[in-house]
Design a protein around this nucleic acid. Structure first.
Length: 112
DNA sequence: CTCGTGACTCCCC
DNA sequence: AGGGGAGCCACGA
């Protein structure tokens, strides 16, 4: 039984450490679908209705912008969550983004 | 079943 | 160097 793309995104997102962030692209690459970054965002969006806690606020686009902030209950929720973890956000942009970036290890691709 | 739609990214003019 | 288009794939209508 293979893990769905969907669940892979969740599994990976859950591994993002406190105070760190990751990008859609890196996640996509790590789960073996390097061009499917859009779907990662979509999956993360769905994570709100997922039973387990998914730190959706720790996933941003490649330049460190909070492209998903509008999908949170309030416009400030994402930023507040990040700042509560020690990440400074200014104009929807993470300051010292690369310093907070967490790059996931590659998943084993069971498809091969 | 087909079509449209994404919280994106890369490549090619 | 910057803008536009194509690729990606799951899911709902």
């Amino acid at each position: 039984m293979e893990i769905s793309f969907f669940d892979k995104v969740f599994l990976l997102a859950k591994q993002i450490p406190y105070g760190k962030v990751c990008t859609y692209g890196h996640i996509a690459k790590a789960i073996g679908a390097p061009r499917a970054a859009r779907m990662v965002g979509w999956a993360i969006n769905k994570s709100f209705s997922h039973p387990e806690y998914i730190p959706a606020h720790r996933v941003v686009n490649r330049i460190g912008m909070l492209s998903g902030k509008n999908h949170f209950p309030n416009q400030n929720t994402m930023q507040e969550l990040l700042e509560s973890e020690g990440i400074i956000v200014e104009n929807d942009q993470i300051i010292d983004f690369e310093k907070h970036l967490w790059i996931p290890y590659l998943f084993i691709d069971t498809h091969s």
